[in-house]
Design a protein around this nucleic acid. Structure first.
Lengths: 352, 352
DNA sequence: ATTTATGGCGTTAACGTTACCGCATCGATC
DNA sequence: GATCGATGCGGTAACGTTAACGCCATAAAT
């Protein structure tokens, strides 16, 4: 690889001049500029990123605004794991991370934490804008020169550096396809819709229904709503209601990480028929039921990777000054008993 | 992060001494050694990898011994793509790569190319040992100080740095599970066994049969053999034979990347029943038939990533002097129409 | 005619690590 | 007591990049 020094020698100038040309810092005559640029092209010069980073390395502090880790059955531990992983990997580059955890069912909490975030003079932000209204207000208050990344949810018409997530509509279609394969005979399907309203969950349901509309329009599909934040045990009531109402129930589509609760209920109150379960996310309890066969499929969001990519995008933009893709879509991953080992890592080593 | 300089100051020694302690290069009194080591621990010193690499960077040339790219329906283009990707990413580190392509159906070709590989004084080797016998002979001739990595296939009792691949037995089980889901009613299943004998293909079949034995022992499953290298069109004869012999055929499991040939045949000679197809690998033609619905599932081997990880492992070991895992297992990935977009990248940009 | 900008360039000190060079000191050897 | 080797250590150049600094011209302003 060509270096700045070689370019300087060939152009009969000093490395300072080459640097000025490379970075358009002026103070170079147009003649020498042209000469240097020609040689840069001829040698196909690419800066040595190691040297650049070594030289430029300075402390960066990133702020992470995300739900409390224990919420959604500890779902949020997984992106946090990825964030720590990125931090460890970038250790040499002096990356600091500050967490701001909000209660995902309280706008007040989101607002309070986002104000703290704003007052902390951070170099980059990683945000989960699941509470859309206060999140919209937040982005207006973020100084223009501070890059921010969304993960899990998106606000497309914002100035975000990038969004990292999964297409929930597509994943719903995929769930429907798998469900249909497992339940080709007559019978009904139940969908558990978790409240309060959530873009992701709604899109998953839309996708699911879309697939059935296109491929099996006559199928009896019932949606049951459940207010999660009240009390986990209240799901048992809904489950019982489903069993009572749908005597020919074949499968249940659970639209978030609480899938294991349904599995647990069915295990206890097991019925004649084998009721199929498809759900989301590789949290510990879901994985247990997948292994035991109570849950048939889980859709993996690559939550760990989402956190990792979030921090890495900020780093790439700020420290490496490299281009970051506008959107980073995570693959929709089908996990079952036979391939779970290759996807699941316990969150035990979260703290480092 | 602590630096060598800081340690030196705190220990009242020079950075040279700290370096000697860190690398056990002797010429340090046991007193100062202890003193320095204490401070190293206290500060939890971790070397700055950027600086290390920058300093140590030297040219590495890796040799890749793999089948000709066009073989197996251009399957081998995909790992090659990953190899180029790694090369591009490690550009700053002066990595050169030399390819040695052999005819995967000729031992003579393998032997000839591996001799060339050995005579080329390379710093590390990336090898596909699909021809086991000559590969075993090759590893005896590799100088002890030259690390080599296997990908795609493995020879476990060798001195390889690592192996990168997928568990074929498991993937066969997974294929069987999906096949069973799609064909719950009475009927038979055909397996296409591609010859000459191949460890991967045999394991896939074993896994497939194992799953059915455990879950549906009475299922009628027939294995049809086909000598691939002769002539692609001869597969039509086999296909016709399957249709003739299995009047109640429900599905076909194709054990390698040639899945599209079966799909193409069934498209032309389409039958009353919908015959399900499960196969391997995201090569272009397979993806087309997956999109059109002729192929139901493809199992993805992450072939691109295999190439990438292969080069990266060599680099990690030689340049970064970091530990490399003994085995790198690729996840077994289920790809269908609904999620193909997140896995498939065309090989068009192969050459750079 | 002298000062004051400003353009055009070279020089240099870092970033953190590595490894070579060389200067002392000291005991052993002839 | 001069020579030698070994031991213990400090100093320093280099990896490639960046950006501040400073010097010399020439042009503009007083």
């Amino acid at each position: 690889m060509a270096t700045i020094k070689e370019i300087a020698e060939l152009a009969h100038v000093s490395i300072g001049t080459v640097d000025r040309v490379l970075h358009n810092r002026g103070r170079v005559s147009s003649d020498t500029k042209r000469k240097v640029e020609k040689i840069i092209k001829e040698l196909d010069y690419k800066p040595n990123l190691l040297a650049r980073q070594l030289k430029l390395s300075r402390d960066y502090t990133f702020g992470v605004l995300m739900p409390e880790l224990h919420q959604d059955s500890k779902y949020w531990e997984r992106p946090a794991l990825g964030i720590y992983k990125a931090k460890r990997e970038l250790e040499s580059q002096k990356i600091n991370i500050k967490f701001f955890h909000f209660n995902r069912y309280s706008e007040a909490s989101f607002i309070e934490k986002s104000n703290r975030l704003l007052n902390d003079h951070l170099d980059g932000l990683l945000i989960t804008p699941i509470l859309i209204k206060p999140a919209r207000e937040l982005i207006h208050k973020i100084p223009e020169d501070i890059p921010y990344v969304f993960f899990d949810s998106d606000i497309p018409d914002s100035n975000r550096l990038t969004f990292i997530g999964q297409d929930p509509y597509r994943s719903g279609m995929l769930a429907a396809k798998l469900m249909r394969l497992m339940t080709m005979t007559d019978g009904s399907i139940a969908i558990i819709r978790i409240l309060p309203e959530d873009y992701h969950i709604d899109q998953r349901i839309e996708g699911f229904l879309h697939y059935y509309r296109e491929n099996d329009g006559k199928k009896n599909i019932q949606i049951y709503e459940w207010k999660e934040q009240r009390d986990l045990s209240s799901l048992d009531i809904i489950s019982q209601k489903i069993l009572d109402e749908q005597s020919d129930l074949q499968g249940i589509f659970v639209t978030n990480a609480l899938t294991y609760l349904i599995a647990s209920f069915l295990e206890k109150h097991h019925t004649e028929r084998h009721i199929r379960i498809i759900g989301y996310d590789l949290i510990d309890k879901n994985v247990d039921y997948l292994r035991s066969g109570m849950i048939d499929f889980l859709i993996n969001q690559f939550s760990i990777d989402q956190g990792y990519q979030g921090i890495y995008s900020l780093f790439k933009h700020l420290a490496l000054k490299q281009k970051v893709d506008d959107t980073i879509m995570m693959p929709i991953n089908i996990v079952m008993n036979e391939n779970i080992d290759y996807y699941y890592y316990s969150t035990d080593d979260l703290g480092r």
